[in-house]
């Protein structure tokens, strides 16, 4: 999970199976190495162990967040790791955004929940784009490049059957109903994305996706000012960096073409993204 190493501990065997399957392409390190985060998702003790069991997330031995039904263990682990990264890794500007790459250049899709960025991201990585992240864009202040972790993509509600239909070969965990985000399932990242996880990407486009029922694909320019505000709002640690953060967001926005993208069909999205890439490579 470059640039991070996570040590996971659990007494939930189903969770171990899920991790083994969905994280199968990741490197397993030996136990003497340095880990950035020590996390645990384990059964809540007491009578609840036998009656609708709950699982709890621990950050380095300290319980964090409310316990959730045990079938939500994997999504909880993913949310917990996201929190660990977002709260402790201020060597990056961290933006709540999906990042995908092709031929060395990256699309950043910052968006509030519900805009369909994870669906778009899941669809495009099934069609040759490389996954950096579906949640956390890590922007390096010095190299001005984006890093990702190539972790599983979190699919919600209708996007689960949509992606199953779109990419039949995709490996997806059984959907977990009734989480705070509705029904959630995790998509295994493509092997190539995991193998290339250490390679950063140069930001080229900022695209704000907007899913609208039955809409034709429409790619409209987004002003640099709006793009700046969007990135700043969607950043977890913009405020931690002060002036440096302001300049980093400015650099990121300056280095990108910015668009708002309204769509309803994934095939349209693929075409539009591929056209953007072709235009850049040829032009």
């Amino acid at each position: 999970m470059f640039p991070f190493v996570v040590r996971v501990r659990s007494d939930i065997s189903e969770l171990a199976e899920d991790i083994g399957r969905i994280y199968q392409d990741f490197t397993v390190l030996d136990s003497n190495c340095f880990s950035d985060f020590h996390v645990e998702v384990s059964y809540e003790r007491g009578v609840r162990r036998w009656f609708r069991p709950l699982a709890r997330f621990y950050f380095d031995g300290r319980p964090s967040f409310i316990p959730l039904p045990v079938d939500q263990a994997f999504p909880m682990l993913e949310w917990g790791i996201n929190w660990c990264v977002a709260a402790h890794s201020h060597s990056f500007l961290i933006v709540h955004a999906a990042v995908i790459e092709r031929q060395g250049v990256a699309v950043v899709m910052p968006a509030p929940p519900g805009s369909g960025k994870s669906t778009l991201c899941a669809a495009l990585i099934g069609r040759g784009w490389r996954l950096l992240s579906d949640e956390l864009a890590l922007y390096d202040f010095e190299t001005k490049q984006l890093y990702g972790m190539a972790r599983p993509v979190s699919l919600k509600n209708q996007s689960i059957p949509i992606i199953q239909a779109h990419t039949p070969a995709a490996e997806i965990t059984s959907p977990v109903p009734d989480t705070t985000k509705g029904t959630v399932a995790l998509l295994r990242p493509p092997s190539e994305s995991v193998q290339q996880v250490k390679i950063p990407a140069r930001p080229a486009w900022i695209i704000l996706p907007h899913y609208q029922v039955d809409a034709d694909a429409l790619l409209e320019p987004l002003s640099k000012g709006k793009a700046f505000m969007l990135i700043a709002e969607q950043s977890f640690n913009y405020n931690v960096h002060g002036r440096e953060g302001f300049e980093a967001v400015g650099d990121l926005v300056d280095s990108c073409e910015c668009f708002q993208f309204t769509y309803s069909r994934l095939s349209d999205a693929e075409r539009v993204f591929d056209d953007l890439l072709a235009r850049r490579i040829n032009g």
Binding site: P3, V5, F34, H88, H90, S91
Partner: peptide, 17 residues
């Protein structure tokens, strides 16, 4: 080493802020 150093600098940055 790079990884622990990143955590130290991250904590320092938070403190400076």
């Amino acid at each position: 080493p790079a990884s622990p150093k990143a955590h130290l600098l991250s904590a320092l940055k938070m403190a400076e802020r």
